[in-house]
Every structure is written in structure tokens, then in C-alpha cells.
Simulated assay, not measured.
Amino acid sequence: MPKRILSGTVTSDKNEQTVTVVVERRITHPVLKKTIRKSKKYRAHDPLNTYKTGDAVRIQECAPISKTKRWEVLA
């Protein structure tokens, strides 16, 4: 089974080797038929601390690295 790849924006780079990425998706409301923006935060592994707040990144699923990290930043 292929690993999921998501794209988002870095919102925090304060932790060592970790970035927080917000992934936004658009869905249509089932009743109102209005487009709604939903977002979710993911913590991703960034071993070289190369990404800063505001950068657009792609993240990929990986084996658990820590209690909260299950994603890694694609180079």
C-alpha cells in the first residue's frame, strides 16, 4: 500500500528536528452545498532543521518516530 503524501504550510519550527504543518482541504457541505475549508495539524520529522515558518512543504507517512510524529518532510 502506498504511503500518503500531503502538502501544507509550516506553522511552527520551534522544536528540534520537528515542524508543525497545517494541511488544508476543501469539502462541499452535504446539505448546504457550500465549500468549506477544513484544516488539520501534523507534526513531521525534519532532521536537518531546514524548513522555517511559512514554507510550503510536502509530508509523507512513515513509521512512528516519537509519540506524536508519524510523518516526515519530503526533500
Rank of each mutant, 00 (worst) to 15 (best):
P2E: 00
P2F: 02
K3W: 05
R4S: 14
R4Y: 14
R4G: 12
G8C: 06
G8E: 01
T9W: 04
V10R: 14
T11C: 05
T11M: 13
K14C: 13
K14I: 13
N15S: 09
N15H: 07
N15F: 10
E16W: 03
E16M: 04
Q17T: 03
Q17Y: 03
Q17I: 02
T18E: 04
T18K: 09
V19L: 00
T20M: 10
V21Q: 05
V21F: 06
V22E: 04
V22N: 03
V23Y: 00
V23G: 00
V23M: 01
E24L: 01
E24Q: 02
R25C: 09
R25L: 04
R26L: 11
I27K: 08
I27P: 04
I27T: 08
I27R: 10
T28Q: 12
H29S: 02
P30R: 08
P30W: 08
V31E: 12
L32A: 10
L32T: 12
K33R: 14
K33G: 07
K33Q: 08
K33A: 11
K34I: 13
T35K: 15
T35H: 14
T35G: 03
I36T: 10
R37W: 09
K38L: 15
K38H: 09
S39T: 10
K41M: 12
K41I: 12
K41P: 09
Y42W: 04
R43N: 14
A44G: 03
P47C: 00
N49F: 10
N49A: 04
T50M: 11
Y51H: 11
Y51Q: 12
Y51C: 11
K52E: 10
T53L: 08
T53Q: 04
T53D: 01
T53H: 01
T53R: 03
G54Q: 07
G54I: 12
D55E: 06
R58L: 06
I59K: 11
Q60D: 07
C62H: 08
A63V: 14
A63N: 13
P64A: 00
P64R: 00
I65K: 14
K67N: 12
K67Y: 12
T68G: 13
T68N: 09
K69T: 15
K69Y: 05
W71Q: 01
W71D: 01
E72N: 06
E72G: 04
A75K: 13
